[in-house]
């Protein structure tokens, strides 16, 4: 996601001004794209290596994909990752939907800006800071309760997923014609019925988009997961990180390629949903 927003064209106010006419702009853009995507090519390429090397291609094979598939640790981490991402993105989406309604479907009130900032806090605070903070907090809770389950990870992931779910939902709500909800109220729909029959059906592409984005963010997280997880709670990214500390085999490439494919597919669907909404 961060990648995508970096390449989005900067908004300029001048009417006749086109950034494309500036010398070197096109070159710069191409360089940026190259820097973004070039490193991914060898990664994917060597995942199909028949040999064990990351430097010499010894023929095409699905060997490392099969190896990963048969690795119980990989499967275990994958299931945990998906479970965690599903739980965190679902909870985050519900909370984000309520937050989006609370910040767009009310008369402007004092503290609205403060609320925006608070909701988007995870986007601004360095991830490692959040991770350390959670580590310290959860350590004391773990000591006090002796509970070491998945709840810590789910809570932590939910927290940093909220802004990613919130932004597309809010954008969709802001783009919605307010007179539709006014018309529903005019036609005897109570606030709840207005939400159920008009707001929600029109909002759901935004909700789905927010949820998919949150899912991908959770699926890809390393830093917070690494510091919050208890032993035996590896997710796919933290498992891979552990593997990288030892001998690197193309198995990691294979897992990375699959993760990459899943992320690309979900982000593509996200953009499609967002496009349809506007």
């Amino acid at each position: 996601m961060a990648d995508a927003s970096m390449v989005s064209p900067a908004k300029k106010t001048g009417r006749a001004f086109s950034i494309r006419k500036q010398t070197g702009f096109t070159t710069m853009a191409i360089v940026c794209f190259f820097l973004l995507y070039a490193p991914l090519l060898p990664l994917v390429f060597y995942s199909f290596n028949a040999g064990t090397s990351l430097a010499f291609f010894e023929g095409f094979s699905f060997r490392w994909y099969v190896a990963a598939w048969n690795n119980d640790l990989v499967i275990d981490a994958t299931i945990r990752s998906v479970y965690l991402a599903a739980a965190a993105s679902s909870i985050a989406t519900v909370l984000a939907t309520m937050a989006a309604l609370g910040t767009t479907r009310t008369k402007p009130y004092k503290g609205l800006t403060a609320i925006y900032v608070m909701i988007n806090q995870p986007l601004m605070v360095p991830e490692i800071v959040t991770a350390v903070a959670l580590l310290i907090l959860f350590a004391s809770i773990k000591a006090a309760t002796n509970y070491h389950g998945m709840a810590y990870l789910i809570i932590a992931h939910t927290a940093f997923c909220i802004p990613f779910a919130y932004l597309p939902i809010r954008a969709r709500l802001e783009g919605m014609d307010l007179s539709l909800e006014t018309a529903a109220a005019d036609l005897y729909a109570t606030p709840w019925l207005t939400f159920r029959r008009v707001t929600f059906p029109l909002l759901w592409p935004g909700i789905l988009a927010g949820m998919m984005l949150a899912f991908v963010i959770s699926l890809d997280d390393v830093v917070i997961t690494e510091l919050v997880k208890s032993s035996g709670q590896d997710t796919l990214p933290t498992y891979m990180l552990g593997q990288l500390r030892r001998a690197i085999t193309p198995e990691v490439n294979a897992i990375s390629s699959v993760l990459l494919a899943v992320s690309v597919i979900m982000v593509t669907i996200f953009f499609f949903l967002n496009r349809k909404s506007s």
Binding site: D177, S179, L180, T182, A183, A184, V198, P201, L202
Partner: peptide, 9 residues
């Protein structure tokens, strides 16, 4: 309504 405000869904 001036914009008709028909429910698009």
């Amino acid at each position: 309504f001036q914009s008709y405000a028909l429910f698009p869904h």
